[in-house]
Simulated assay, not measured.
Amino acid sequence: MSEDRFLDGLEVYCVGGAVRDKRLGWPVYDHDWVVVGASVEDMTRRGFTPVGRDFPVFLHPVTHEEYALARTERKRGHGYTGFVVHASPDVSLEEDLARRDLTINAMAESADGTLVDPYHGQRDLAARRLRHVSPAFVEDPLRVLRTARFLARYRGLGFEIAEDTLALMRELAQSGELGHLVAERVWAETEKALGEPSPEAYFTALDDCEALAVLMPELLEDREALAAALERLHCLPSSQVDGAPEQDDSEVGERRRWRWARLLEHLGDDARAALAERLKLPKAYADLARQAARTRALRLDSEAAGLSADQVLGWYDGIDAWRRDERLAPQLRLLALDAPELARTLGAAYRAAQAIAPKALLEEGFKGKALGEELDRRRQAAIAEVLAAHLAES
């Protein structure tokens, strides 16, 4: 850092996640920097580009990493945005660290590697404890979600939420402050948590502090079903989406979508729709959850009384398999987790039904409504034939 001419003469510290994860042996992907004793004019004169909307943040001229001026915050209003920020050369590093949520996020490292730890974050790292920095924790309701998300990340290392911190989270949940969080922020934290090693810990933590009842009450309508759903978060329809950390962004996104689908697949249509509307879910998440719910319902029907060709045809229609055939294979893999023979049968039935081409029916003279009805009739007959053959084999 000292060899960087743009930083020469500045008091700069690495803060937050990079300091924490370095000491945990966790992968460090990003660095956050705090500059103490400098002004906006100092930074712009050195060639840094201002990008902060709510407080002074600058991009390094070469590395494009973010450098923020040391600042303090004072609550004035509701929610996570109701803060007045003060950033100036007279704000100390300790004052800047004091505004952070958890002690493990309130550590800094100087250019020579010296740890600055006024709130005993290193002690809490050793104790595997998520603990708030100060009572000001309750000023920001988003910290309830962030703390739960950190638990989802580090539960496998033995971390727990400190009892007094959990009490503050509960206080926030009971105060009505969570209601001031916009849906996009709630979903952003939830989506990140779905990608963590222990996503179930996120939802159990929110339940423990009574926040889940505020943010996602539909999940609490059946606690036994919720417990089973949380176990399903690690049972996904493809090993490729629940595997190693070197996966690319598309695979990580797929894992998150499947975990959300598995969490919701036992819910009814109305409950899923209510959650989707409240959280402003991306369409890909809502669609996959709906498909997974249909697949679960089909499996339960099969276990209860067997399946008719009409039910199977309805399932293909419900997941839009005729127009979007790429949807079928993932749902068959999902089905195979609990009913592998049924998955094989439905795969064969689909191939048989798909072989009936609308073009051939047109050539036979079917048109309009009659064409659709005849296509369904013949597809259903093909499905019935496969079902009967597989039933006879078993």
Rank of each mutant, 00 (worst) to 15 (best):
L362S: 05
A213H: 04
D248A: 02
L145R: 01
A329Q: 07
L275T: 12
I319N: 01
H132S: 06
E231F: 11
A382K: 07
L361M: 12
P199T: 07
G176V: 12
T81C: 11
T72M: 14
V19G: 05
E139D: 15
L102T: 00
Y154P: 00
T63R: 14
L298H: 11
R299Q: 10
M216H: 06
R128C: 08
G243C: 01
E254R: 04
R170H: 07
D140I: 01
E218R: 02
L279A: 05
K359W: 07
V28H: 00
V144I: 12
L264W: 15
D96N: 14
P197Q: 08
F137Q: 07
S238T: 06
A68Y: 04
V34P: 00
H132A: 12
E221S: 15
D42G: 13
Y67E: 03
L212S: 04
E326S: 13
L281M: 12
S238P: 09
W258T: 00
M1R: 03
L97A: 06
E94A: 12
L130C: 10
Y316N: 13
E231I: 02
G25C: 13
V252A: 14
A348C: 05
E94R: 13
V19N: 03
S134W: 00
E177S: 11
R74L: 04
L233R: 06
V138P: 09
D338V: 09
A370L: 15
W187V: 04
L298Y: 13
E139T: 11
V84W: 07
E341F: 00
F137Y: 12
F6Q: 11
E65M: 14
E11Y: 03
L391F: 07
F48I: 12
A360I: 14
H86V: 04
A388M: 06
G243Y: 13
E163A: 15
A343G: 09
Y202H: 00
E254D: 02
D317Q: 14
G253D: 10
M216D: 14
C14E: 10
T44A: 12
G195M: 06
G77V: 12
L337I: 06
L342A: 02
A276C: 14
L334Q: 09
D317A: 12
E191I: 01
A304I: 00
Q240A: 10
A349K: 03
A382R: 12
G365M: 13
E73I: 08
E210D: 11
E246A: 01
D4A: 10
D249I: 02
V241I: 15
E254I: 00
G79N: 08
W315R: 02
G176R: 10
L206H: 00
R155N: 01
A392N: 05
V186F: 03
R262S: 10
F55Y: 15
P56A: 09
V57F: 03
E189S: 05
F58T: 04
Q331A: 06
A87T: 02
D320P: 02
E393S: 13
G17F: 07
D140W: 03
E210R: 00
R324S: 10
L267I: 15
K369N: 08
G268Q: 06
W315K: 01
R278G: 11
H234Y: 09
V252H: 09
H266I: 02
S302C: 08
F137L: 07
E265M: 10
S238F: 08
L97R: 03
D222S: 07
E189Q: 15
R296Y: 14
F150Y: 11
D4E: 13
L226E: 09
M43P: 15
H266N: 07
S175Q: 12
V186Y: 06
L172K: 10
L313T: 00
